[in-house]
Every structure is written in structure tokens, then in C-alpha cells.
Nucleic acid binder design. Structure first.
Lengths: 219, 219, 219, 219
DNA sequence: GATGAATGAGGGTTCATTCAT
DNA sequence: TATGAATGAACCCTCATTCAT
């Protein structure tokens, strides 16, 4: 199991001056629980995950989980909410640069491959897809904090590109989701069918860009 | 909940000669259980579904379920396996006709909208996406019985289209998944975000075809 | 532990014609659970009672309890509510007869000794005293269904007695509770101090009547 | 919650010579814990009381409780034992004065109302009634240290009164408990039914004395 | 001494599965 | 065949108690 996540926005708990040690340990434990829980939730789904296993994997006692999270559902939501948000800003920024959409799209592929597909954030996306329907607040949070922000930036980007004549029809303008569809497929495929037929995600997404914007150079 | 599914290949249990009535009743019960179970599994997921609720919804006693299915998991797999297979042949057939790929693709959109998105088969796809990782045999079955067959036909279709010059680059040839990506997105979107931002699936998929093959007439 | 309760108002569940056997068994099981639970609640108090023990004592599985009672608290309240009500009518009736209060009081002592102190109803009173403060609905139910009815009848009885000159001052009229005080003491004493200094309850209560109404014959 | 108790016998821990300040602080903490614990035990009962709440209410950390008391049960018993004993001497003294029993009884009513019913000692009595059965050592302690001493003095008092002809029959002689019965009822009533029907305890107890000894003047 | 984070046994409740009717 | 009462393993969560700081 991938253990670490590139976490740009460190800092977390203030830790004051005095017993910083204790605060640090607490934060570490909390993170260990989050990590372990993500592993378990990703592997078993929400309902089938036992907090006993989470505790064991995190190396803490069962009761310790409850020192950091109110209950199983809160723990779950905490993971979903905390893991993806950091990338949103990165993606937004990349979209706002005033260069050809084909270039930006290529950068986004790299960001996705590196920051999401190559990390456990991929599992979080899978969890949202799998469990989102049962946790309306999660779907809502994800739509509000992630999707709508990304889509806003994407629409602006597409408008600029259209103005520059980089896009042919109006399909992408009307359905920006088309740009993200292969990303979803990649995550789903990875979870279900990679062992039967592996998918080279980077190549796959770049091929998609070729379809959208005409062939680029690199793959 | 959509109650009925167009089921071309009825038949199931032979029903012998004599007490055909009994066999018919048994088959009806079995189907009622399958229907009810699909509703519940789709709404709650596998682990959170209670057989009690399935029984109640099917109008049978809890024990009756065990007369037809070995256990909860078998019931689940039975649903997954039985519901999608029928469409495969339809899709294969459509792909084998020797007409422009753009036309066939348009027909496939209609098949999808009518036979899957407009029925509970959509729920089954969602279940495969959500639970497939926990049920390797399901992923495997689905890959073998559905995906690989559809992909085989699709590859042949794409080859013919390429030969005819209907396709520009080699992206689609190398990654036929690109054709299906928006279908996955549509199913996922429907489950999670339709209440925030509804998606006109037919228009969406046709827009995708416009991107792939250049604009068609219809929308 | 006293196992049976004189239950004047048999009947309970209708039991129909057909599967009366099943209904009878169900009722028996339900009663076994109530009996066992009363034993445990009386011995340990509400919070310290484990349903595991109740089940064991009742000879059923733990889950069976939940077929008959929603949860531990409901089971508890059910006991409290079902056990005492039957005696209320008896007591009311006794009080309504138009004979000297001294005689009626003597009869009430007998009723108490026989129907309450000699049965597990005594435990129920103790439970009300012990746990009532934590279960407002129980105190309220008991006040409404038992106390207020008994007090109403008692006030009428006292009024008649006063009119007949059987009572000296107005103390009893103003505080009918004085008649019941030794009953409470008896129940409490029985639970706490009988092993140090047994209390002959019948004699005790009759002595109380001597104090209230002057000496009678019997003891 | 009544905070203070008239505590005639202060002193507790000797406090050595040197760091008396520390000892005083320790004693204060200990008392704060006892006070908080009584509040909680009275409100929730022994089993349902959480030491967490006690600590919070006492303004100390949970671990601190264990510096002063071996465990939850010890803390409980400590309260029971420490709170009531002080009044015993007062009651004994009042009973030993050589004046009419009616007068002494009137004084006892005042003592009860002031020292017990008006303080948290009332709660302790309630706790003994509620939990005594589960803590044999408490019932035993209470019987030995309180009841038997009070009853001894009471029997002497009654003997003197009988010799003086202040008592009619032998009921009180045989069952001195009759004198205390309304006290028990008052405490129980206060906990359960006061909100439905308040009881004027002083008037109630004096009415009882009217019954026992004939009407007095004041109330 | 004082703290409060950490522990882990324990208990209420659920639910897949069985089986007597 | 169909039922649904009964079972009991499993799981979430609580809380008395401990102990490193």
C-alpha cells in the first residue's frame, strides 16, 4: 500500500511552543489512522470495513480512533474531504495560464498521473464513485469543493481556446465533462480490469488529447 | 424504481411437463427476488443491504431467498451476471453491420440510452463499478463475458472504419476504451451529481461522437 | 428467585385458531424473557444488567430478545408497566366497599402481603424507586396509572371514613401518603436490611393500622 | 445543585507541618471530587455515572481521581460513608434529652428538613436506597453506623415515653421503624413524583407526628 | 503531584443463515 | 415448498483504568 502522499500544505496543528512533542505525536497518530482507514476503506468499502482492522493497521488500540474521530462515518468523510482538496488549487492554477489548451491539457495529464493516479488519491476518487451515493453530503461536498471549481476554470479555459480557434465544434463547450471522462474510466479500469488488461494511463490520456485537439508530439 | 426489464431470452428453468404451474410460480418468485435485490443493492450497496429488506420488497419470507440462492453473495453475483449479458449480443450485432462507424456509433448511443440508461441495467453497471473490486469473480466474469466480447467487436469495427478512412489518428485504435469513457462518466454522474447538475445523456454521448468523428446531423 | 406471578388477567395474545402452537410458544418465550429480565434488573439495576445474562437466564439467544423488545430500555419499561397494573383494580375495588376503613385497611394489608410483597411485584416497586428518577416516563406512567388512581380511591375512602367519625384529625385527609409510607419502608427495608434484622411485614403494617385507627383484633 | 454541606467535623488530613499548603490543596481537590461525584451519582446512579463527567465537574483530570480513590466503587462508598455519619450524633443527642417525645420528634423533623432534606444528604439516602442492594458493604455500613445507632437511641426514647404514658399502644415499641417510614417516603417521593404533585415535607412529617402522638400546636 | 492520551475488555445491537413447522 | 422465529457471531462504540510525560 502506498504510504505517503505528497502533501504541499503541511503545517496542520499549531503545536504551540510548550508540549509540541505531544501535539506532534497526536498529529502523527491521527495521520496514521487516516492512512490506515483509507487503505481499509479502499479495499473493503465503507460498510465492510472494520474499525478493528483500521486500528490494527494503524498500530493503535480501537478506542484511540475515537479520540480523533467521532465515529466511523466521520472518519470516512474526513478522509474524503481532506485528501482531494489540495490538488484542486494546482489544477485551477494550471488552467489559468494563457497558453494553448493543448499544452495545458498535457500538463493536466501529468498532474493527474503524478498527483492522483500515482498516489492514494486515486483510491479516494474510487471511494467517492463507490460510496458517494450513500453519503449525500460527500457527493455534495465533492461537487461544491472540487467539481464546480474545476469546471469553472475549465469553462474559462475552453472559452479562451475557442476564441483562439483551438477547438473545432461546440461539443466540448457544451459538455466539458468530455474532457474528464477518460480520467474516470482510468480510475475505474484500474480498480477492476488492470489485472486482465493493464492500461497505460498516461498514454491513454494523451491519446484522448490527440482525439480532442489533434495529435501532439510527445506521448 | 423501474420494475421491468426487456428480457429477450426468457426461458430459464425448463418447467418440466407436469406441474408447470409450480415451476412458473417458482420462476416468478425467483425473479421477484432478483428484482427486489437489485433495487436494494443499487440503493445501499452490497454490504449494507439487508436480506430482510430484499425479502420484504419481493413479498416473500426471508427463508425463501435461500431456496433460490445459496447466500447473499450468490444472489448478488446472479444479478450482476444475468442482467447485462442480454445486451451484449445486441451490441455485437450492431457493430458487425457494414456501414459507416459514425452511423453505428449513433445506433449504439440509442441502444445504450434505451436498453441500459433507461433501465435498471444502469444500476448494475454502477454496482460493478462500486463493488467489482471486492468481488474478483464478478470483475472477471464481466471482463470475460461483456468487455472482451464488446472490445473484440469494437476492434473489428474500428479496423474497418480505419480502412475506410473514417478515423484520423491511431488513438482510437490503440485505446478503444476512449469510445466508452463517456458512458462510464454518464453512469457515475447520474448516481452522484444529477441532482446538482443534470446531464442530458443522449446529447452528451452524441457530442462525444461529434468529437470523435466530426459533427453528425442529429443531436 | 420467585418464578411465577399470580396473573389474574390471562389471555394475552389472541392466538387465533390455526398456528396457536406457535403463538403460544412465542408468548411463553416472551414471558420467559420478561421473567429473566426482572430477575436481573432487580438484582443488578438497569445499567448494570447485561442482556447476555438475561438471555442466558431465559434460555434463549441474545438476538431473540430483540424479536420481542425493541431495546433494553423498552424491555425494562415493559416490565415496569405490565407487572403492577393488574393489582391496581384489586386495590381500587377493595377501597370502594362501604365498610369501616379499619377493615378495608386490614384487607389491603393482606392484598399487599399476598399480591406484592410475596411476589416479584415487590422487585418492581423497588425498581421504580431505584431507577424511576432516570426514566421520567416510568415515573410518569406509574404516577398516572397507579398512584393517582389509588390516591383517588383512597381519598374517597378517607372522606367516607371521616364522615363516619372513624378518623380523628385531618392529618390523613391532608396527607393520604401517610397510609402508604410503611409500605415503601417495608420494600426498602426488605431489599437492604432484612439480612441484619428481618421485618415481619404483615405485623408491621398492622401495627401501623393500630396507630392510625386504634388497635384492631388481629395481628 | 446544592454545593455546600454544613460540615462540622472539618480537619480531615493532618496536613503535617511543612508544606501544609500542598496538603490543603490536596484536601480541597479531594473534596471537589467527592462533591462532583455525589452530584453525578445522584443524577445517574452508580453504573451510569462516568468518571469523565465527575472529573470535568470537579475541574480535575480523570487520572487525578485515582490519586485520591482506588477506583470508582471506592469513591462511591467513600461518599456514602462520609456524608451521613455527621448527622447521626446530632440525632442521637436530640433523642437523649429528657423532654416529651412529641417535642423531640418535632425537633427531629426540623433537623431532617434542615440537615438532610435541604442538603445533598437527601441524595445520599436516595443512593443508599437505590444502590444499597448492589453494595452489601454499604448496606451493612449504613445499618451498623447509622440505623442501629439511631434505633438504639430511638428505642430508649420510646421506652421513656411509654413509661411517661405518652404513647398509647405498643405498636411503636414493637416497630420503631414506623417513626421513620414517612421520611423514606418523603425522600422517594421527592425523587419521583414532586414534579407531578409536590409534597410539603415539613407539614407532611408534622402531620405524621399528629397521628402518632395527637395534634401538636404549630407546624 | 497532575495530566489526559491510550488502552482494550465489554455490552448493546444487527443480520446472515438455519431449521422446525 | 414456504415461512419466520431463533440463533450467535460480529461490530460499533463506551468507559474504567493505566502510565508516560
Amino acid at each position: 500500500m502506498a504510504r505517503a502522499l505528497p502533501r504541499p500544505n503541511e503545517a496542520s496543528k499549531p503545536a504551540g511552543r510548550a508540549n509540541g512533542a505531544r501535539a506532534v505525536r497526536a498529529a502523527a497518530r491521527r495521520q496514521a489512522i487516516l492512512d490506515a482507514a483509507l487503505d481499509e476503506f479502499a479495499a473493503q468499502g465503507f460498510a465492510a470495513t472494520r474499525l478493528d482492522d483500521v486500528a490494527k493497521r494503524a498500530g493503535v488500540a480501537k478506542g484511540t480512533i475515537y479520540l480523533h474521530f467521532r465515529d466511523k462515518e466521520t472518519l470516512f468523510q474526513e478522509i474524503i474531504r481532506s485528501v482531494l482538496s489540495p490538488v484542486v488549487t494546482t489544477v485551477e492554477s494550471a488552467m489559468q495560464v494563457d497558453i494553448p489548451i493543448r499544452v495545458i491539457a498535457g500538463q493536466l495529464v501529468e498532474v493527474f498521473v503524478r498527483e492522483i493516479y500515482g498516489t492514494r488519491r486515486k483510491d479516494v476518487i474510487r471511494l467517492i464513485i463507490s460510496e458517494g451515493a450513500r453519503f449525500p453530503s460527500i457527493a455534495e461536498f465533492y461537487y461544491r469543493e472540487v467539481l464546480s471549481r474545476v469546471f469553472a476554470a475549465l469553462r474559462a479555459l475552453l472559452a479562451r481556446a475557442a476564441a483562439r480557434g483551438e477547438i473545432k465544434g461546440d461539443a466540448l463547450i457544451r459538455f466539458p465533462q468530455l474532457m474528464g471522462a477518460p480520467v474516470i474510466l482510468a480510475v475505474v479500469w484500474n480498480g477492476l480490469f488492470d489485472r486482465f488488461e493493464p492500461l497505460d494511463v498516461r498514454a491513454f490520456l494523451n491519446a484522448h488529447l490527440d482525439v480532442l485537439f489533434g495529435p501532439g508530439r510527445a506521448a
